[in-house]
Design a protein around this nucleic acid. Structure first.
Lengths: 208, 208
DNA sequence: GTGGTTTTTGACCGATTGGTCAAATGAACA
DNA sequence: TGTTCATTTGACCAATCGGTCAAAAACCAC
């Protein structure tokens, strides 16, 4: 019984099936939320029977938790890349671009996190939240340094980051509303949003 | 059998119990989402038995739908109040303030809508969406007028409105994350957010 | 009070849910 | 080939879900 949680090195089948399950689960969880998603749905999307799925993961929560922890790293990459040695306006502008691209290219991940946070982050470990806070604090210090040096306008960095998160993720999380108001259009929205946010934050952050 | 849906004028008890149910349902739906909320939870929170609750509303969906339609009006009031005759910067600044206050004072309503839109607005009628679009279009025209007259910077009004929605509602919808990063503090956050957004949009929208 | 209506209740139902289990099957290596 | 371990399956289960129904209780105008 070398189940997924075993410490032994996983077999080829274990790797493949585990990936298939997580891919399917991302689809379902993002679309239906944790409570709305069912194991049968996930199993079918992954091409497995329900008991077979539960051979690889102990529970519905285990799948969800694995997904959250795996994707958080990816999700925070754009923030991680902010370079204290770079030009402040360029760094922040590039950060906004990266976040916007993530919103466009990984909307399921965005919705997965949105669902989780909306419900009060019940499946997020304190350690994970602490790591998130540590990363934000680190970047806040950088931005504060830039502001103190007069290289950008002194705006509260915490709320600056929140506003960037909010505006960029909005296009993934509330896509239905955006499309409903702007009309269909395969993806002209991304370009418009990019131009808008670029101008808003450039004007907002340019010193003087 | 003068059930809630009857055309007859409602009795005192009908009015009272209907309100109690909707108040309880707002609590539960906002916290658990539509699928996560159960009729038993709502009934208990409203101080009724489940069959008694179903005497006033035909189904879980009926409660949810009633809630959505009732609250959308309130929710859109800040946008409605934008006055084409007013000073552009003052009008938009005041709009942001009103939205931020709503986020602070009505977080349950914010989360109710966030849940609904996140899942693709499955309980929102096309008519409601059309009305929303019409209101946005109307205000977009006003903002475009201001921009053409050179009274504010010419930024895409649709994305301007989206960004205001996103940034203000973020403080209600993702409150757990905000608190986790900023630390507890009963409500100092609101003041900080208000100051930040005020400066960001003033700088972003001031012409020239 | 009385009669008719509204409101409330408990007992119940079929469907779905997350999850278990023993047995059957498959893969791989000696 | 046989053996051992990994994988898969179908049958099953208890709990929970949204919802029904007939009868009891409460309400209210007369």
């Amino acid at each position: 019984m070398a189940r997924a949680e075993s410490t032994r090195t996983p077999t080829r089948i274990q790797r493949e099936k585990t990936e298939a399950i997580l891919a399917a689960a991302l689809d379902i969880f993002a679309a239906e939320g944790f409570r709305g998603a069912t194991l049968d749905q996930i199993a079918e999307a992954a091409g497995l029977s329900k008991p077979n799925l539960l051979y690889y993961f102990d529970s519905k929560e285990a799948i969800h938790q694995t997904l959250l922890e795996r994707l958080l790293d990816t999700w925070l990459n754009p923030l991680r890349q902010i370079d204290p040695a770079g030009d402040p306006l360029k760094e922040l502008g590039a950060y906004i671009q990266r976040k916007l691209e993530m919103s466009r290219d990984m909307p399921r991940e965005s919705r997965l996190f949105a669902n989780e946070i909306l419900r009060g982050a019940p499946h997020m470990s304190p350690a994970t939240m602490a790591a998130l806070k540590a990363l934000v604090d680190e970047k806040v210090a950088i931005i504060n340094g830039w502001a103190k040096a007069g290289r950008i306008e002194a705006l509260d960095p915490y709320h600056l980051i929140f506003s960037i998160w909010a505006t960029t993720q909005h296009y993934a999380d509330f896509e239905v509303q955006v499309r409903g108001i702007l009309g269909p259009s395969e993806d002209g929205h991304h370009h418009d949003a990019s131009a808008f946010l670029s101008r808003l934050y450039t004007r907002g952050l340019t010193p003087g």
